[in-house]
Write a protein that binds this DNA or RNA. Structure first.
Lengths: 161, 161
DNA sequence: AGTGAAACGACCGTAGA
DNA sequence: TCTACGGTCGTTTCACT
């Protein structure tokens, strides 16, 4: 038995995602409104076949086509990642944090923080209220705030590099 | 002069984003391929007007319509946030980190970490190599790895709550 | 799972208020 | 910046492979 876990062939070998579906996903990562006909021409499939595959990817929750916005340009100039240390049921605590509207990203982690949460606020005052709110959730022991100074990269092309 | 900064009216008051454009963005956050005609019916505008506004939002970098995928279902089962402590030029270091393909999110922060970077990998072995690679970048003093255990929330509706 | 064809609906450019 | 309209192209359904 090897000491390191090695890739089992190519990624997504067990899913029903072949190279053609990946090519379709890539097309839609460039432009989510690109026509099925144009995608078909690019990947060598008929328009109907592309549509069927896209439908399947959407139904399976593998892909979604959405608008993503720049918070800064919409007046939400304060973003931060909160590192949370908690006790007891991490799923319960993280779900309470996730239920807060200003939280757009929340997950349970292994490391010196138990939960990470990304928050979007209009200003420092709102951010402070939000941090206070999270610190008051039962089970939360401490929070640390990492204010965003400069966004360097933000990509959505997971899994098709 | 007040001690706390208060909201200057509503968010995005200074941008050219009115309530109608926000409504259009909301529609496209639900479904990035919804037809302009259907959106027009929902927000009370003609198809052409919707199209013009969407074009403007895209050209201004305020919104983009893209496919987002679930890394897990595409065979990328290891995700982590890396907290990086660095010295010297944080922009230079963060850009080097951002240039790594497996890094999908990278930013400079104020706090006990100088840089946060989210990475997507196929397995633990790849993640280890990646952490090593980042630690070898000149100016990087230390890294801390927060392995993702359970994603609780992931939203893209910034600025339209 | 894939193709092809016909009816329908969406998109795009242009003109005009 | 919006509406109105006509030409073009994309999408949908269905029968077939």
């Amino acid at each position: 038995m090897p000491l390191t876990s090695q890739p089992a062939g190519s990624p997504a070998a067990n899913s029903g995602i072949d190279a053609v579906s990946k090519a379709i996903i890539e097309q839609l990562q460039e432009d989510g409104r690109r026509s099925y006909a144009a995608i078909g021409k690019a990947v060598g499939l008929s328009e109907a076949a592309v549509r069927q595959r896209v439908q399947k990817l959407m139904d399976g929750g593998i892909m979604q086509i959405v608008a993503v916005t720049d918070p800064m340009q919409l007046g939400f100039s304060r973003q931060a990642m909160l590192g949370v240390k908690a006790e007891a049921d991490l799923l319960a605590v993280s779900d309470e944090i996730a239920a807060i509207p200003q939280v757009d990203y929340c997950l349970v982690t292994a490391g010196s923080f138990d939960i990470l949460a990304e928050v979007v606020c209009e200003n420092d005052h709102d951010l402070m209220l939000l941090v206070n709110q999270i610190r008051s959730i039962p089970g939360v022991r401490s929070t640390e705030t990492f204010m965003y100074l400069s966004l360097r990269k933000q990509e959505y092309n997971w899994g098709t590099r």
